[in-house]
């Protein structure tokens, strides 16, 4: 039913179409932008075609042009799609997993454990996230992985709260009571009875956060925390594009390609998720059932 509604809504349709395009890009990256022989073992390293410190405009060999330091923009965009999905899925997935584990234990066991875990959640929620992310990456080194670790560390709490609330409701249902009374193991009860009936909203929330994760990572890249220049990551490419906006005298758009392609990629990717998410929320919002 939900799928049908999503497909009928023009907003989510738009989102789905864009997203489909990115999935195709990601899956077929090795064919769309083949890795040159020299870089075979490091496909995420954007090939360099020279060393010059100023960008080179698009040409037939390099349809999107070359960045400062002559990295191929087309290659970076295509392979950056994989990076975007990887970052989004890993961060959303793992933090969702942590949230679900903490939240369900908290709700199922209840009492002191619940109280304790919820206070831990409170503490994490009072943590200045950006500072924490910067500290983690400054200490353990500037890299995409460390940015992801920092993000996961500070985004599981919402899932924990959400699943806890849901489980607390389901917990009172008769079949759960019955299972408990008949001595089914706690682990089994959570896994068989509680989670399947409460996890759906959490999963939706997690998948909807994929776009914003990519956006946050790009922001951290801008602050100098993400991947190194030359790594196929949109945020990195965009963050290095920031100083090429003025153009040359008489030609304010001289370096447009350095900015436009990675910006378009990131905005479209995030937009797709947000459009779907927006439509989704409409569908799930009980108040808008006109």
């Amino acid at each position: 039913m939900v799928t049908k509604k999503l497909l009928r809504n023009p907003i989510s349709m738009l989102g789905l179409i864009i997203l489909l395009g990115f999935v195709i890009l990601a899956v077929f990256a090795p064919w769309i932008a083949p890795t040159p022989e020299r870089y075979k073992d490091e496909p995420y390293r954007i090939p360099r075609y020279g060393y010059r410190a100023t960008p080179t405009p698009p040409s037939s060999e390099h349809p999107f042009g070359l960045t400062q330091g002559q990295h191929d923009i087309f290659y970076g965009i295509v392979w950056g799609t994989r990076t975007a999905f990887r970052v989004g899925i890993l961060v959303a997935g793992i933090s969702c997993l942590i949230g679900v584990v903490v939240g369900s234990i908290s709700a199922y066991v209840g009492g002191r454990v619940d109280e304790f875990l919820m206070r831990v959640v409170d503490i994490f929620m009072s943590f200045p996230f950006i500072i924490a992310a910067i500290v983690v990456t400054s200490v353990f080194g500037k890299s995409l992985t460390n940015v992801m670790v920092a993000l996961i560390f500070f985004s599981w709490m919402n899932y924990a709260r959400l699943i806890r609330g849901n489980i607390l409701q389901v917990k009172q249902e008769e079949y759960v009571m019955a299972a408990r009374a008949s001595g089914v193991s706690h682990f089994k009860i959570i896994l068989r009875h509680l989670l399947p009936n409460s996890i759906f909203p959490v999963l939706i929330q997690a998948s909807m956060s994929l776009g914003s994760v990519v956006l946050t990572v790009a922001g951290l890249s801008f602050l100098g925390l993400g991947a190194e220049p030359g790594y196929a990551d949109w945020g990195q490419m965009l963050s290095f594009a920031r100083n090429w906006l003025m153009g040359t005298p008489g030609n304010p758009l001289a370096y447009w390609y350095v900015v436009a392609y990675p910006a378009a990629a990131i905005v479209l990717f995030v937009l797709a998720w947000n459009l779907i998410g927006d439509a989704f929320r409409d569908i799930l919002d009980p108040r808008i059932q006109a």
Partner: peptide, 25 residues
Amino acid sequence: DHATRIFAIIGWSLPSFVAGILALM
């Protein structure tokens, strides 16, 4: 409805530094 929402969601989907630099420019 769709137009305003898409307009606003585009803003929501912009990396803030891109929006900022463009505004500054």
